[in-house]
Amino acid sequence: MILFDRVSFCYNKNQETSFILKEVSFSFKKGAVNGLIGKNGCGKSTIARLIVGLLEPSDGKITITDEFNAKPYYFSGMIFQNPDNQIVGTTIGDDIAFGLENFNLSSDEINDSINKAASLFHFENMLDIPVSKLSGGQKQMLCIASVIALNPCWIVFDEPTSHLDPWARIEFWKIINELVINKTIGIIVISQLPEDINRFDNICVLNDGEIYFNDSVNKFKELKSLPYGIEFPEGWKLEKLLEDEK
């Protein structure tokens, strides 16, 4: 579980008015797809950076506990929006190896983990293929494979589907659902796309530095109004209209 306890954050310490997060408290649980939505610039990416430790909260506390596996360290991975800006290796194998090398593992352990992660994404026969030859969707898959190889407790996806075509999106969600069922890795997905909202189990809505809503999708559907800039998926709107007709 990830627990935010009255967390405040501002990028500029000198300007006390510029708080991106104002004493927010909420939690994400494993075994479900946790969605985080909110309009542009409301601080979604900031929350992601706080979770993986790239940023420190100005005030308050973030606790990560892990009820499903006992690991010596709590490591959280993050997938950024643009795959081109996060691939480090020149070949698929190199890129998956990069993170493992950082943890100073032996080359046998590294090879094991590479093969495991590669087979999850059907990369096992492509380890020597240059990254530049991959399509956008494949690159995104490689980023995910590289993070999963590190065996993280949590993975935060920051707008992962915006670079994918509709078919690659379906593929992406298949993988996410498998991860959720296995319960070993907690999933947080930040997305702006209404069709992604359909896939969330829990939804957290961020608005003006505060949590506007944080509960299951069914409760979310019943909301009468949403903050400016966020919309229900079209399908839900139709459903609502049909219900109102009755």
């Binding site: 950076r49 480090v88 990069f98 090398e101 593992l105 080359s107």
Partner: peptide, 26 residues
């Protein structure tokens, strides 16, 4: 901006200039 994001991505994947790294290809 791109290289800042790359540096972030590398840090999230555990890269640090201080800790020792291993090499998987000898």
């Amino acid at each position: 901006m791109r290289s800042e994001e790359l540096a972030d991505a590398m840090e999230v994947r555990g890269y640090s200039t201080e800790r020792p790294r291993s090499l998987y290809k000898k």
